[in-house]
Each structure stands twice: as C-alpha cells, then as structure tokens.
Amino acid sequence: MSMLTPSGMGGKYRVTGNQYPRMRRPRRRGRVLAAMIAAVVVLGLFGWGALQLFHVFSGGDKGDTKANAAPQNSPSCKATAAPTPTGKPAPLPLPGGVTMNVFNATAKGGLAKSTADELAKRGFKVAKFGNAPDPYDKKVAQSALILAGPAGEAAAREAGTQVAGSTVKIDPKRTGKTVDLMIGTGFVTLSNPADAAKARIAAANPAPPKPVCAS
C-alpha cells in the first residue's frame, strides 16, 4: 500500500504515485449551451424591436403607404353593359303623328320636293318644302340635319330613322312639335323601308352612354 492511499481503501481504490488525484465535478455542457442560445435569441429580439422603432419614428412607412394607396385623382370608370336587343319598335310616334318641313340645303334643285313627296307616301305630314334658310343653306355637310324643339324630340328621332347618317339637333328656344329636315350635301336618298324599320329597332335600344371619368 502506498503512503498516498487513505486508510481503509484498497483494491481498485488504491492510489499510487506521488500526487493526489484532482476530484472535479462533471461539466454541465447542456446547460451552458442552452444559456448561450437563449442569450442570442434575447439579443436578437431586442435588436429587431429597436429596428422597428427606428423605422416607425423615422417615417419609413411613408413610401410604402404611397406605393400601396390608390392615386387620389385616378379615373374611376365603370363600363356599362350593352342593352339586349328586344326586336321591338322604338317608342316613337308613328309617321302620321310627325309634322315636318323639308328644306334643301344643297345646290341640287328639286331635291326638297322629291324628298317631301316620298316622305308623304310613307305617312309623314309635310307642312311645307323649299330651299333652306340662310343659316343652313349649303352649310349642312351630313346627309341631313333634323331640327326640333324639346316638345318635338321624339318626332325628330322618328324622322331621323328615314335618313341614314342624319343628325338630330334640339333647340331649347324652339316651341311646338314640328320638325325641320335640312337635306345636306351628304344626302343620296331616303333609307328604304326595311332599313328605316331597322333604324327604329336600334333607336329602341340605344348604345349606352360613355362612362364619365373623374379627373
């Protein structure tokens, strides 16, 4: 037995040599590693929070807000669905309920009388015909210009079905339901009855108005 062996210890507990063995507690590496990971997570959270506070107080969200917000003055247009044709005549007066004056605004002679005669055959009431007054004489470029007051608007639209490419003009100062049909330089002939009937159906289902966009 060595001098370094404590009393009562022998066998496998025999200590040999000239020094006592150092008795150390086993290291708890798992706890140390967990503490290090927790410290890293806490520091990361603190850093992220500080970054968010800096972003808010420095006005960093202004650019994103402007990018995501819709422009204040952008047009807001909503398309209108086209009406479904019904195949029914337009709610216009019959030719017998339309009284009109036929005027020739072209340089071609006799056009007012021949047109008035044909319209009379189709049932329209022709009050008079002749050359167009000075404000319109040789100044109507389209096939026909149809003038009427507010009370004669429906009659004017009915007269317009007889001349393809005609334009209806409503004069708010005009009274009565009588219609003036000014034959223009673009006039060739009256629409045939079949085309006039199609024009009445189209007038029953007018194209939807164009959407108005707010600027």
Rank of each mutant, 00 (worst) to 15 (best):
R22F: 07
R24D: 03
P26M: 11
R27V: 15
G30E: 09
R31I: 15
V32A: 11
V32T: 10
V32H: 02
L33D: 04
A34F: 10
M36D: 07
I37L: 14
A38E: 13
A39P: 02
A39M: 05
L43P: 09
W48P: 00
G49R: 09
G49L: 15
Q52A: 12
L53R: 04
F54N: 04
F54E: 06
H55Y: 15
S58E: 04
S58N: 13
S58W: 09
S58P: 08
G59W: 01
G59A: 06
K62L: 12
G63Y: 14
D64Q: 11
T65P: 01
A67K: 10
N68S: 10
A69T: 13
A70R: 15
A70P: 11
A70I: 14
P71I: 03
P71D: 09
Q72P: 01
Q72F: 07
N73M: 10
N73E: 14
S76N: 14
S76K: 15
K78N: 05
A79I: 03
T80G: 07
T80S: 13
A82R: 10
P83C: 08
P85M: 00
T86I: 01
T86Q: 11
G87L: 00
K88V: 15
A90E: 03
P91H: 15
P91N: 14
P93A: 14
L94Q: 12
L94E: 15
L94P: 13
P95H: 06
P95K: 00
G96H: 05
G96P: 03
G97F: 08
G97S: 15
V98M: 10
N101T: 13
V102L: 04
V102A: 11
F103I: 04
F103T: 08
T106A: 11
A107C: 00
G110K: 10
G110M: 04
L111V: 15
S114E: 08
S114D: 09
L119Q: 02
K121A: 05
R122C: 12
G123N: 07
K125S: 10
V126E: 01
A127S: 12
K128L: 07
K128H: 06
F129K: 02
G130A: 12
N131S: 09
N131V: 05
N131I: 10
P133A: 12
P133N: 05
D134A: 06
Y136L: 13
Y136M: 11
D137L: 09
K138W: 00
K139E: 11
K139C: 06
A141M: 09
Q142K: 07
A144P: 00
L145M: 14
L145T: 04
I146G: 07
I146D: 03
I146F: 00
A148H: 11
G149Y: 12
G149D: 02
P150M: 05
P150G: 02
E153P: 00
A154L: 07
A156D: 06
R157Q: 13
R157Y: 07
R157N: 04
E158P: 03
A159M: 13
G160F: 01
